[in-house]
Design a binder for these strands. Structure first.
Length: 271
DNA sequence: CATCGGACCTGTTAGC
DNA sequence: TGCTAACAGGTCCGAT
């Protein structure tokens, strides 16, 4: 479900319903997510408090209160939505954060690859410490990709999907940006020139920003925090288009597996 | 150190 | 129709 634009869309959707609202309770029906949910710590720290700020780092959402930070990751199939009144939970509705005005934030995650964490310090959670630059931030550039990749032999697609290289590039947007930049996904990261990496950095920024503007990519049943679907899907050039014609030439798109992930590309446009 | 594969889960779909 | 295997938006960790 969520890549960076979907997480950003979720953040923008839920934020207005959460900021500065007093939290009455947190109800955890299923605490076995990717990591065990620290139920006791969460109850002690957030009940009676409120969140003054929510931000995104990579695909993590960070909810800040006076006592610390709740960190949520949506994993592969997680989603968050606001309910204005309590509704009976469905099978995979694992966690509710209830607010004073009867509204609640509900976390749903069929595959349970998502996670909840608590930290009393601002950014010193181990999961956030080794992340590379934000793709839409000022510290990310083609030069960064070039410098960081010298001597590396792994496929460039794996290289950009590694969060130490850049934060928050998943399978869809890695595939799309490599297509737009004209780079084949299995080319060794260390053999790509600076101008090519400048093109790639530009494409990553452009595509992520465009997708955010359209509310993300709706695959399966993804909806943002306000229940609206995303509208980026028709713009996908390669992801999910194996066997179809390239949008720029007559070549049939191929799908190869790189790092156990499907990687669709045009063998003519991507060198 | 860099790289690769396995692991965590459930649901859907393709193939027999 | 029913069973099985492969695959799905992520990413950490241990083995090599």
């Amino acid at each position: 479900m969520p890549e960076l634009p979907e997480v950003e869309t979720t953040l923008r959707g839920i934020e207005p319903y959460i900021i500065n609202k007093k939290i009455n309770d947190i109800l955890v029906r299923q605490s076995s997510l990717r990591w065990e949910v620290p139920v006791k710590k969460l109850k002690e720290n957030i009940v009676g408090e409120s969140f003054s700020k929510i931000k995104r780092r990579a695909k993590y959402l960070i909810f800040t209160s006076n006592l610390g930070n709740l960190i949520i990751h949506l994993g592969m199939s997680g989603s968050l939505k606001i309910l204005l009144n309590m509704e009976a939970p469905n099978k995979h509705d694992h966690i509710d954060i209830k607010f004073e005005d009867k509204s609640l934030l509900r976390f749903t995650d069929p595959r349970r690859f998502g996670s909840f964490h608590w930290t009393n310090k601002s950014t010193e959670h181990p999961l956030l410490m080794n992340l590379g630059p934000e793709p839409l931030g000022n510290h990310f550039s083609g030069e960064h990709l070039f410098n960081f990749s010298r001597g590396r032999k792994l496929p460039v697609k794996n290289f950009i999907m590694n969060s130490k290289t850049i934060a928050g590039i998943g399978n869809i947007y890695a595939s799309e940006s490599l297509f737009e930049a004209g780079i084949k996904p299995h080319k060794a990261a260390g053999k790509i020139s600076l101008p090519k990496y400048e093109n790639l950095a530009y494409s990553i920024k452009r595509i992520l920003q465009e997708s955010i503007n359209l509310g993300g990519t709706s695959l399966k049943d993804f909806v943002g925090g306000e229940g609206k679907p995303g509208f980026y899907k028709p713009y996908l050039a390669v992801y999910g288009r194996e066997g179809k014609k390239c949008k720029n030439c007559v070549t049939i798109l191929k799908n190869i597996r790189i790092g156990q992930r499907s990687s669709v590309f045009c063998s003519n446009c991507q060198k």
